[in-house]
Design a protein around this nucleic acid. Structure first.
Length: 778
RNA sequence: GCCCGGGUGGCGAAAUAGGCAGACGCAAAGGACUUAAAAUCCUUUUCGCCGCAAGGCGAGUGCGGGUUCAAGUCCCGCCCCGGGCACCA
């Protein structure tokens, strides 16, 4: 049982409470069912807010983080979450992050960690680089109104693209246990696209322009080749100073604006490329809508059959040449067509391929290109390598030393961890804070011993959370990240629970890390978690709770006012766990009322002397009890709709108050015991208290889960609704398994039903055994 | 634009395999207890119509069609809301 570990921001919020209340109910239920449950907790303790606190309040990030951890831990304990604190980890401790560094070195050895200069997203507000995943609508994910800028920097990358195909294919393994929504988002993020790469050669040069296309069948309609402004060849093709400025402006403008509705602009480079199929010379353009980061950073423009190319070419007067016609129609006229024809069809005006259907032409033309050495079938992914460098202090130092002679040298394993120096003054200026710590920076090259300098950037905190759950299995290991044999016993995670917000970032990095660890021979599982559950958000007045909106409900206040059990019960009752829920305080009081009512019932009736019961009352009480046990067990075993489980307990209690005087001592005791056990996963404090009141000892959640007896849960008579022409007209009671003839006789004799049937012809009698009778009359 | 969710009383919701729509809770109204209040308990509460009343009749799950003895649930076509992706060649 694993819930996503929190960032120690200071206080728990209601989203945490909900997440952990769900997980805790399940963990307790599984214990009671006799499973050996590992239910750990830790802290995603590196990150920007610690530095911001240092900046704003002068707090030391280390001290700030650990005082937050202490507070949040006490909150969790107060809420009564049954967590194994012996396995607690905090990612900012060297005992933990040294293994981040160790993994980095392993990836470096295998070429999975590399350094390159790249244009990266720079948030002026954070003064740091952002991962693509952290850019929302062209703005920073933390400063949603701050546009991201482009800067070229030397950055460390992890080669997630090396696992792109596997990350996509293995989604199959997750289909039964992960929400379809999350898988869809991941598929989309990985973005596999099948097509071909084709070279357009440059006259009088060895250079070629390689383009990626999914529609090689349209290649005879290519009327120009377009390069992304950042494309390396642009520097060679464009020599004029004015043009170069224009390109620079294009890049900056693209970075400033929302990419979606950027106007397509471009210009002719003055050069031509040779069409590989028909040898035509086509002009080379440079345009802002071609992305360097996707495919080859260059395209062939086929305006007749692509919407973007059409828009661009029409705007710049580049010819439109249709080469695909609909299966049942003629070829369009390029000069007059108002929109491109983007469907598949029949290839025309394309030399020997004319007459072929698109699908066939795609394969054959790619094979031809391949055979003649100017192209190949190709698969492109949208997912990019993971840039992990952050110009930040409060993160894992990247274990690299730069030596003037040897270059980037990995720190030897035995020298790990590269410790983060403590007691630093944070200024919030752009460069990495570590640069200003000479005792950290200056170090001998591990290879040649000459003076070198350390890498001053730290790792993205998503690194910390990519593998933390493995560490829970063996949290104090100081010779390896964990013992593989111990991990093999527990993994994969049976149930992971967390917010939908992590559907791509954390969950895709974790999957990547798992695959890398598997290839390192550390683990045997292919995926980190068999089952994933994403709980809904906790809202207040229809929007997410946030300090800026001033609508935050503090769990501490709730616990002070109503107690932990009420707080937990409410988060489980207000909505099914996967749905967003709106916080409603008066509804919280309802849960409190229920708990007091239940408490009163049991304390008043526990060990009640005498035997005032009746056979009938006992039977009715036990029937309702077993019915409730069946309902709740069922909810736990299938879809976790604890709102209905709690409603069932309420129903039971309502009925018990009706039956109170008619229950024997024996039945009453059994009922009180079982109700207490049924309550235990949701409201552990109250349940424990009641358990002791009932004269028992020891933890209530170490008791076996009360299993229902199907016979006892059964009603004696079935209450069967009777319809006439599909409209409800009455009810009858009949023994279970009554025959059609019997039922029909009873139904037709029924006073309520008679008037609707009399004088009419019975066409048909529909009978669902024990459930419904419908008489069709004319 | 594409891909996911979702739309049921005044509100949160329930109806798990096509079979009694609105369980359970909140809020509201009335009543009991109380000097009073709180707490607690009881009653009413989808809408419209008929009835002094017990009760009865009709409509009703975003809209329009369809399948079926029977549709909140299945099919077709729309509308609205939320989320994700969005020049991905």
């Amino acid at each position: 049982m694993l819930e996503m570990l929190p960032y120690p921001s200071g206080k728990l919020h209601m989203g945490h409470v909900r997440n952990y209340a769900i997980g805790d109910a399940l963990a307790r239920y599984m214990w009671m069912r006799g499973y050996n449950v590992l239910h750990p907790m830790g802290w995603d303790a590196f990150g920007l807010p610690a530095e911001n606190a240092a900046l704003k309040a002068g707090r030391d990030p280390y001290e700030w983080t650990f005082s937050n951890i202490a507070h949040m831990k006490s909150q969790m304990q107060r809420l009564g979450f049954a967590l194994d604190w012996n396995r607690e980890i905090a990612s900012c401790e060297p005992e933990y992050y040294r293994w981040n560094q160790w993994f980095f070195l392993k990836m470096f050895e295998r070429g999975l960690a590399y350094r390159k200069e790249a244009l990266l997203n720079w948030c002026p507000e954070c003064a740091t680089v952002l991962a693509n995943e952290q850019v929302v609508n062209g703005c920073c994910w933390r400063h949603e109104t701050t546009p991201v800028e482009q800067r070229a920097m030397q950055q460390w990358f992890l080669k997630t693209t090396a696992y792109a195909a596997e990350l996509l294919n293995d989604i199959k393994e997750l289909e039964s246990g992960w929400p379809e929504r999350v898988l869809a988002m991941q598929r989309n993020w990985i973005g596999r696209s099948e097509g071909a790469e084709v070279d357009f050669s440059l006259p009088g040069s060895a250079e070629k322009i390689r383009v990626f296309t999914t529609r090689i069948d349209t290649i005879y309609g290519a009327t120009c080749v377009i390069l992304a402004p950042e494309h390396p060849l642009v520097k060679e093709l464009v020599t004029g100073e004015a043009e170069r400025l224009e390109i620079k402006e294009m890049i900056d403008a693209a970075a400033r604006q929302d990419l979606g509705n950027l106007e397509k602009i471009g210009f002719f480079s003055g050069r031509y490329a040779i069409h590989p199929f028909d040898g035509r010379e086509v002009p080379i353009w440079i345009a802002n809508f071609v992305l360097l980061g996707y495919g080859t950073g260059a395209i062939m423009a086929v305006p007749a059959h692509d919407e973007r190319d059409f828009e661009f070419c029409r705007a710049y007067g580049i010819p439109v040449v249709p080469v695909i016609r609909p299966v049942d129609g003629p070829l369009a006229d390029g000069d007059t067509m108002a929109e491109p024809y983007v469907e598949y069809g029949i290839v025309e005006n394309s030399g020997e391929w004319s007459g072929l259907p698109s699908a066939e032409a795609r394969k054959k033309m790619a094979a031809f290109a391949s055979a003649h050495g100017f192209g190949t079938e190709a698969v492109t992914y949208r997912i990019k390598d993971w840039g992990i460098s952050r110009q930040r202090y409060w993160g894992t130092p990247i274990p690299i030393v730069y030596c003037p002679r040897c270059g980037a040298v990995p720190v030897p394993e035995e020298d790990l961890p590269v410790r983060l120096p403590l007691g630093l003054k944070i200024t919030g200026q752009g460069e990495s804070p570590l640069k200003r710590v000479p005792s950290f920076m200056n170090v001998a090259c591990p290879k040649c011993g000459e003076p070198g300098t350390r890498e001053s950037d730290t790792m993205d905190t998503f690194v910390d959370s990519s593998w933390y759950f493995y560490r829970y299995c063996d949290p104090r290991n100081d010779t390896a990240p964990f013992d593989s044999a111990i991990v093999a016993r527990w993994f994969p995670i049976d149930q992971y629970i967390g917010g939908i917000t992590h559907a791509i970032l954390h969950l895709i990095y974790s999957r990547f890390w798992t695959k890398v660890m598997r290839d390192l021979g550390l683990i045997t599982n292919n995926e980190p978690a068999k089952n994933l559950f994403t709980q809904g958000m906790v809202l207040k007045d229809g929007s997410a709770m946030s300090k800026s909106k001033g609508n935050v409900v503090d769990p501490d206040d709730m616990v002070d006012k109503y107690g932990a059990d009420t707080c937990r019960l409410y988060t489980l009752f207000a909505a099914p766990p996967e749905k967003d829920m709106d916080w409603n305080e008066s509804s919280v009081e309802g849960q409190h009322r229920f708990l007091t009512r239940l408490f009163r019932f049991i304390t008043c009736n526990a060990g009640r002397p005498g035997d005032g019961g009746s056979r009938d009352g006992d039977r009715q009480g036990l029937r309702k009890l077993h019915h409730t046990m069946r309902k709740i067990t069922n909810d736990f075993d299938s879809r976790w709709h604890f709102n209905t489980s709690i409603a069932a307990l309420m129903e039971l209690l309502n009925e018990l108050y009706q039956l109170e005087a008619r229950l024997s001592t024996k039945a009453m005791n059994e009922i009180c015991n079982c109700v207490t056990l049924l309550l235990a996963p949701f409201a552990p404090y109250t349940a424990q208290d009641l358990w002791e009141t009932l004269g028992h000892e020891g933890p209530v959640f170490r008791q076996p889960w009360p299993m229902f007896d199907p016979e006892l849960a059964k009603e004696e008579l079935a209450e069967i609704p009777v319809q006439v022409n599909g409209k409800l007209r009455g009810h009858i009671q009949a023994p279970f398994g009554s025959s059609k003839e019997e039922l029909q006789r009873v139904v037709l004799a029924n006073e309520k039903v008679k008037p609707f049937v009399q004088g009419k012809q019975i066409v048909k009698v529909v009978l669902v055994p024990d459930r419904l009778v419908n008489i069709v009359v004319k």
